[in-house]
Every structure is written in C-alpha cells, then in structure tokens.
C-alpha cells in the first residue's frame, strides 16, 4: 500500500517525477474554475448536496452544494460557530443530518455509522485530540490498521492466524512513527505525550488505515510554531501520496501556505470558495470575519444623510397607506 513507499512513489502523480509535481496537478486542475460557491470540480472525491443540520432553532449547517477535489488539500475556514466541525461530524457519520445527501467516490454515505465510513477510507482526527492514554504509542498505532484478523473474538484465541499480520503492521507502524519522529517513544503511554506529540500521533494513527480522504480538525491548534512546521510538512506529504486532505484551521498563514482550494463557512452556510489568494479579497469573507461596515467609518455627514433618508422613507410610508406600490426598497442602502 502507498504508505509503505517513500512520499514521491504516490499514485496521483502520472509523470512520477519530483515531489512537487502532484501539487501542480491539483492546483492546475482547479486554476480555471470560477470562484463561486458550489462550483463543480473536475475530479470530485466528496460531493455534498443539500445537507442541513439543526439543533433546536439553530441551523448549524446548511450546505447547498460542495465538491472536494481529489488529491488536493482543501482548507475549511470560518469564524467560531460557523459549523465546520458539525460538517465534519456529518461527513464521517458521527452525526446524522436532517436532510441532504453526500457521497464519497459516488457512493452515498447517508445513514452510515462512523466505522463504516472509516472502512471506506475516510478517516478523521478530532479537534480535542483523542490519544488513547493508557495504551502505548505503538499500540495506538496498531489500532489504526484495518482488516486485522486478530480483532475477531475467536481468531484472537489462535495467535497463528494473526501473528504474521501483526508483525507486518508493527513494521508499518514503526516506519510511520519514524517519519513523525515518535519512534523513540513507542513504548511510552500515549497519556504522557505533549499536546503537539499527541496531534502527531493521531495523524500517524489515521495513516495506519491507508486512507483515501483524511479529515483533520484543527491539526495545528495548540501546537508550538516549530512543531507546526513539521505538521505542515506531514500534511503536504499526504497530498503527495495522492490522498485527499480536508482540514479545518484558523491560522490564515497556514491555510494560504498549504491549501489548493479554500472553502469559507459562516453561520452554517458556505459563503465563498476559491484558491487561497482569492479569499482574502473576497468581500463576503471579510464581512463574515469583521462585520459588514468595518472599513467604512460613518462620518457625521454620512450619518445625517442616512438619517434623512430613513426619515423620508418613514414619511412616505405614513402618507401612502394603500399597499401596491413597489418602490419602498429604494434608497435604504448604505
């Protein structure tokens, strides 16, 4: 499987040249797309259609259409409470939406439980890192491997049926731990690792399952700057190995640095999509983060003018009691 190979042995690179080539592929494919919400991607791995999720009166997620390009890094950003994590939960089966369909490689993921989604090759990490504290680092890693014969109750009692597989998995786990510089800690309890090391461990553990789509929920949160660089490198490696990466992040520098495509959510809706350089100029995004009038301070004259307009309109409304006229919306703008 791909994870055994060095990064540039990836399936996504047709030319099979240097490590930079695959990134060009994903970026190039997305270059000519219009910067519109819901734009169809040339090679979509994940497609979301009309998904809504409400908690009581609050609409946490309401996504009309979203496609995620295969083999690219898609950044998902938005202010706190925008519904990014809820969307993650919905996509991975940890939560069920009120309406809508979503699919991976054309296969619908609706009504699937989390473990079924994971077996299809869509793995996720969590915002609050879930290291299994009282297992060793190596045991954490081995848990990630898929299709283990020894995980069935009766076969577990016959070590002959799973020992060879366990040995292969251990080798693979050690390779990954080496890549993530955790190999020296393989026999320590995961509970004694630092926050950043736990993030690394969780990502490495997810890779044990040879995923096709990796969903990272705030991988850089609470990680010191030096470790951030190494985490970034690992995320880029995932892309070079041909995996599709979706990640939630608040640090715009990180997002600009590694994403091929950025999706912006606010109040449950997707308000903008585009390559990272397009996002900071997008008016809807700036409004969502900073408020609509942030760059236009009201002068006294402006204020008087707005006030006069509003008063004039109220006067008009009072004069005209009969409905039917259509010009009431005129002149109410800023």
């Amino acid at each position: 499987m791909p994870a055994d190979l060095p990064p540039h042995g990836a399936t996504a690179s047709g030319a099979g040249t240097t490590g930079a080539a695959p990134q060009r592929l994903a970026q190039a494919a997305l270059r000519d797309l219009p910067w519109e919400v819901g734009v169809p991607k040339p090679d979509a791995a994940v497609v979301v259609d009309g998904v809504t999720r409400t908690f009581g009166g609050l609409t946490a997620v309401s996504v009309d259409h979203l496609e995620i390009q295969r083999g690219g890094i898609t950044g998902l950003i938005g202010p706190n409470g925008a519904g990014k994590t809820t969307l993650f939960n919905l996509l991975t089966g940890f939560d069920q939406p009120d309406t809508g369909t979503w699919s991976f490689n054309g296969q619908s993921l609706g009504k699937m439980s989390p473990h079924q989604v994971a077996r299809l090759g869509v793995v996720r990490t969590f915002q609050l890192t879930k290291a299994l504290s009282r297992l060793t680092v190596l045991q954490n890693m081995l848990l990630g491997a898929q299709g283990q014969r020894g995980e069935s109750f009766f076969r577990a009692l016959v070590p002959g049926t799973w020992r060879a597989q366990e040995k292969a998995n251990t080798e693979k786990a050690m390779d990954l731990l080496q890549r993530f510089k955790l190999d020296a800690k393989k026999d320590d309890f995961a509970g004694i690792l630092s926050g950043g090391q736990r993030k690394l461990l969780e990502m490495a553990r997810a890779l044990m399952s040879d995923p096709q789509v990796v969903m990272l929920d705030e991988p850089m949160a609470g990680v010191n700057p030096a470790l951030t660089q190494s985490l970034l490198g690992h995320v880029k490696d995932l892309r070079e190995e041909g995996m599709t990466v979706i990640f939630v992040e608040h640090d715009m520098d990180v997002v600009r640095d590694i994403s091929d495509w950025v999706v912006v959510m606010s109040a449950g809706k997707i308000i903008a999509e585009g390559p990272p350089e397009s996002i900071s100029q997008n008016q809807a995004v700036v409004d969502a983060y900073l408020g609509a009038h942030h760059d236009a301070p009201l002068t006294v004259e402006d204020e008087d003018r707005v006030l006069a307009e509003v008063e004039a309109e109220i006067a008009r409304e009072e004069h005209r009691d009969t409905p039917g006229s259509a010009d009431s919306s005129k002149g109410t703008g800023r």
């Binding site: 969590f126 299994l132 504290s133």
Partner: peptide, 25 residues
C-alpha cells in the same frame, strides 16, 4: 490470551475513547 491479542487492544481502546476507535473503523 484475549487481552494480548488485537481483540483485547480494541477493547482497551474503547475504554480510553470510543469515538477514536469508531473513527478508525
């Protein structure tokens, strides 16, 4: 015998965090 097998490893992981185990299939 069970607890040194992969089956036991899954069981201990469930004790630590169910959701992490679910996310791993």
């Amino acid at each position: 015998a069970l607890m040194r097998s992969p089956w036991g490893r899954v069981l201990k992981s469930i004790r630590e965090d169910e959701d992490a185990v679910r996310a791993l299939g």
